[in-house]
Structures are given as structure tokens and as C-alpha cells.
Write a protein that binds this DNA or RNA. Structure first.
Length: 508
RNA sequence: GGCGGUAUCGUCUAGUGGCCUAGGACAGGGCCCUCUCACGGCUCAAACACGGGUUCGAUCCCCGUUACCGCUACCA
């Protein structure tokens, strides 16, 4: 019974694109690619109260940034559209009616007050609307056909509820967790159609997954509890044979505390939770994303993939293609994972240091341009080669290289003062006056040869001269090889900096 | 509360009855390299939740307890 692999990501356009959501996208994508299947993007916009303008485009942007674009969906189109649930409203109503006609669903006219009263009475923390209490309520099970028709004709608000079977066991197989079962007498009568005629998630997801011929459902573990309802719906609608395989993904948890990772946690602990910057159009609040924080999409995707999955070896760095090749559902971990930002940083660091500098060129050039600095590409590349291994985030590329492009604003005089003495002062004076102009070509290796040689000729340990030299050139105790720095600065600029700094060091 | 799920170092995890003296990675400590900071190399510390079974033998299988997570909306 091999069938064509068709998977979908079905977000509701309500806000930022969470890490967990991105990982769901990734696993969907990997599975589709691996099986030459199709990856569908469906927008679940059935809740008009939570709908947020711009969120749909934003979701698409996030997928694009990660290179995980769908084959089919709102943007690409396809044969199974429309791909926006708000455009499929009539469809759901038709199936709801079918269920009612079969006796598997019913109209319910209870007001919110009546519902609240009932819940209080049965002391339920859930809907309380179940097989044990539905006969006490105002619905098409308790009202005569005439009464029901009259209410509907009079425009009385109503919802359609699923009539949960009485004493059945529902079994289904989860690809990650194995066999799972529920007893229907523990489940309640969920709303299928809301009073505005829109379906709830439960109805919509089943109808759409069937109509779109979805073969595998990858979704968060939070859906596990409602899966029996969905399975029952597939059965009652007569689609049992087409039931997709379920794979409920472990949740991504808060780093320290308890519960699901939320945007709040990121704000509190200073790390992003969303893939890309998200600006709430109502409040105007901006939430930083991994992209803007300075993550490379490849690193972000790699980190996500390893959050709950591994290939069984000790390999940790995977390209997208490798992931496509090696991904497997049975290697997905069952337990939730606490998110560790340090680990995310490590992945990014790894990618930055191993990535050819040319990959950062356009980013870096734009950054320099913004600062009004213009430098030849080749030089930028050389400098990036020198410093990228000490960067975990893209902005650190600048933080670790600014001194190549502009003179230090101040020098760490304190840092050298302890070791600064007459001997060194004399040495640098002589170096500048007697030796500096002799260094040609002015290249790393040759600079080193000259400076070390000059020191040794004067009976000094060359190593001791290098730290002061470094501070003179860059302003502090940091950076790559001091000779490489000198070369990039050029003979004149290096000399100028040395003179300024030396005067500062000599002052006291 | 009910229902469902999960349980290995601080964190992400490997492990599918003997290869385990429980492996790797992040973070942390130390050492080496060294002109600083990194990179790299070496190294230290660090875990099978608990109690019963099953078995010649349990991290691994079964049961219970505990803990944690999720669901329990006309939200998804």
C-alpha cells in the first residue's frame, strides 16, 4: 500500500514563527524530499479573532530564508487548492451536514452562560459536554426536529458538535510513539463548526488532509490528545482507508523552567525564539529573530534538525542534502528537549568559521557601506579569513575587525603600562626610525622576520615586544596574528598608529 | 482532577539483554599551542528517577511509584 508521499505544514497566521514550528517544517520538508513527495503549505486561518495581518507572508518568508519552500500551497498553487481554509468554508459545512445526517454530529444551541452553568454543575475542567451530559443540554438530540428547525429558521446561533461514540476504544499508530489508544467515554463532544460557520481545527484538518491526499502528518505533540477525535472523524466520514500516518514530534521546552518554550522565555533570557524578526502590527512590538540576530540559515536548520533527532553516529554537522538523505522517523527522540541557546551558538560558530569568506562578502560590504567605508573586495576577504573563526554571530564579524578599517578611538594603555619600560620605549623608537622603512615587501612573513630580527640584534626577546605592538595597532589585546594585522593596515597606517600609541604609553 | 505522553551527565543525546569501567557534543575546570583573543589538541568533573518483577544476566523487557510535559475553548 505504498502511496505517494504528501506532507503539509499548516500554520495559523497569528504571529511569530516559533522554533518548534520551524522544526516541524524541516521534518516535513526532509521527509518529502527523501521520498520524492510533495510538501504543501496550507494556511489555517479559521479563527478571525486571532488572525493577524501580514503573518501569512511572514511565514512564507521564514520558510524561504531557511530554504524550505513548499512545492504546493498558497503561493505556488497546485491541484488541491484553495490552500487557505477561509476560502474553503463551504466545504466544511457540507461535511458537517453529512455527519449530522448520519447521526454522528448534532446542532447545539446552548448559550455561553448555559455552558458555564453546566460546567460548574458537573465540576468539569474540560468542556463537560460529553456523552454523560449532552442529554441535559439544548441541542438537536434533546429537542424535536420541529423545534430545531424553528430555532435555525429564527436565526438562533448554534454550533455543530461531534457525537462521541459511547464505549469504544480508539487505536492508532504513531510513527514515533507506537500504538496509542483512548477510550471514547473519556472524550467529549468537540465543536466541529463554530457559530460563524467556520470549522474548528478538528474538522478542517481532517477534511483538508483527506482532500489534499496527505499521507503523513508531522505535527507537535500537543496534538496527540486530539488525534482520537481526528481518527474517528476519518472513519465516520468514510475515509478510513486513507488515514494518514501520524508522527507527533516532541516539544521544545524552556531552557530552565517548565513548559513549552515561548517568546517570553527568549525575551527574558536574551535569545531569539522566532526564525525572523516579527513585528506585531497591533502593538508595534518587535521580536528579534534568529536571522536578524546573525544566524546563518544553514546553521539554524542544522541546529533545529539535531533538536530531537540524530543519525546514530557522532556527526553533528549536516548539510540540508545530507539531512534529506539521512533523516529517519525512527531516530526521532520521544522526549521533549529543553532549548539550549549555547548549543545554537556553537552550531552557528561552526558554520561561520568553516564557511568561505566569500559567503559573507555581500553582507559585510553592505555593513561597511552603511558606515561609509569603502575597501576592495579582496582585502575584505583576507580580513574575514583572519577573523571569522572567532565569531559566533554575523555582527561579530565587524566587532572583530573594525580596527582594520578605522583607527582605534582609544588604546588600552592600562593593559600595557605594567610591562612598558624604558627598554621597550627605546626599542620601538629605534624600530620606527631605523627599521620600519626597510621592511619590504610589507607582508606578514617579512614583517615578522624584520621585527624579530631587529629585537634579537639588540639583545631583546622579540616575544616581549609583540603584545605592546599589538595594542599599538589595534588598541587592545585581541585579534589574529599581529604581523598579519600590520600587513593589512599597511606600512603607513601601522606606523601612524604606533607613533600615537607610543606617545600615550610614554606619558606616564 | 481526568486522559494521554515521556523519563541516561547541568543541557542536547548514543545506547534496543551481556560489547557499559555507560560513548559523543554544548557549557564548566585544567594543561598544551602561543604575541593577545580565538581555533586546534590533550585532559578532568558530570548521568542510567525509585521500587518490584522476568532472566544466568538488566540502562535496555513487564508492573507500580514518582517527576516532568501535553490536552482538557465556538485557539490552533
Amino acid at each position: 500500500m505504498e502511496r505517494k508521499v504528501r506532507v503539509r505544514f499548516a500554520p495559523s497566521p497569528t504571529g511569530g514563527m516559533h522554533l518548534g514550528g520551524m522544526r516541524t517544517v524541516l521534518y516535513n520538508y526532509l521527509f518529502a524530499r527523501q521520498h520524492n513527495g510533495s510538501f504543501v503549505l496550507r494556511i489555517e486561518d479559521t479563527d478571525r479573532f486571532r488572525y493577524v495581518e501580514g503573518a501569512e507572508q511572514y511565514i512564507k518568508d521564514c520558510l524561504k530564508w531557511c530554504g524550505l519552500e513548499p512545492d504546493e500551497g498558497v503561493e505556488q498553487g497546485g491541484e488541491y487548492g484553495p490552500y487557505r481554509q477561509s476560502d474553503r468554508k463551504a466545504l466544511y459545512q457540507r461535511y458537517a451536514e453529512k455527519l449530522i445526517a448520519q447521526g454522528d454530529a448534532y446542532y447545539a444551541f446552548d448559550t455561553p452562560e448555559e455552558l458555564a452553568e453546566m460546567r460548574k454543575r458537573v465540576k468539569s475542567q474540560g468542556s463537560g459536554y460529553d456523552q454523560h451530559h449532552r442529554l441535559e443540554m439544548k441541542n438537536s438530540l434533546t429537542l424535536s426536529e420541529d423545534e430545531v428547525q424553528k430555532l435555525i429558521d429564527a436565526g438562533a446561533p448554534y454550533v455543530v458538535r461531534f457525537k462521541m461514540p459511547e464505549a469504544e476504544s480508539v487505536y492508532f499508530k504513531d510513527l514515533i510513539r507506537g500504538e496509542i489508544s483512548f477510550e471514547t467515554n473519556q472524550l467529549d463532544d468537540k465543536v466541529l463548526l463554530k457559530k460563524d460557520g467556520m470549522p474548528t481545527y478538528h474538522l478542517a484538518v481532517v477534511v483538508d488532509d483527506y482532500l489534499m491526499e496527505i499521507s503523513h502528518i508531522f505535527r507537535g505533540e500537543e496534538w496527540l490528545s486530539s488525534t482520537p477525535l481526528h481518527v474517528l472523524l476519518w472513519e465516520k466520514l468514510g475515509w478510513k482507508d486513507a488515514l494518514p500516518d501520524y508522527a507527533h514530534l516532541p516539544l521544545i521546552l524552556k531552557p530552565n523552567g517548565k513548559g513549552k518554550l515561548s517568546k517570553r522565555d527568549g525575551d527574558k533570557m536574551g535569545f531569539p525564539v522566532y526564525a525572523m524578526n516579527w513585528k506585531d502590527p497591533k502593538t508595534g512590538d518587535l521580536t528579534e529573530g534568529f536571522k536578524e540576530r546573525g544566524f546563518l540559515p544553514e546553521a539554524f536548520v542544522n541546529m533545529l534538525a539535531l533538536l530531537g533527532w540524530n543519525d546514530g553516529t557522532e556527526q553533528e554537522i549536516f548539510s540540508l542534502n545530507e539531512l534529506v538523505e539521512k533523516f529517519s522517523i525512527d531516530r526521532i527522540h520521544k522526549g521533549g528537549a529543553k532549548f539550549d541557546y549555547d548549543r545554537a551558538l556553537w552550531f552557528n560558530h561552526n558554520y561561520i568559521k568553516d564557511c568561505p569568506s566569500s559567503e559573507f562578502l555581500s553582507y559585510f560590504k553592505a555593513l561597511l557601506e552603511e558606515k561609509g567605508i569603502s575597501v576592495e573586495e579582496e582585502k575584505i576577504l583576507t580580513i574575514l579569513d583572519l577573523i571569522k573563526e572567532r565569531c559566533s554571530l554575523l555582527p561579530e564579524l565587524w566587532e572583530n575587525s573594525y580596527y582594520f578599517f578605522q583607527r582605534p578611538g582609544e588604546w588600552d594603555v592600562k593593559g600595557v603600562k605594567k610591562k612598558w619600560d624604558e627598554e621597550k620605549s627605546v626599542f620601538f623608537k629605534a624600530l620606527l626610525e631605523e627599521e620600519w622603512d626597510q621592511i619590504a615587501p610589507f607582508e606578514e612573513e617579512n614583517i615578522e622576520k624584520h621585527i624579530r630580527g631587529f629585537a634579537e640584534k639588540r639583545g631583546l626577546k622579540s616575544g616581549k615586544m609583540l603584545l605592546p605592538l599589538r595594542v599599538m595597532l589595534v588598541g587592545g589585546k585581541f585579534g589574529p596574528s599581529v604581523f598579519a594585522i600590520a600587513e593589512q593596515l599597511g606600512k603607513e597606517e601601522a606606523k601612524a598608529r604606533m607613533e600615537i600609541a607610543k606617545a600615550l604609553f610614554d606619558e606616564d
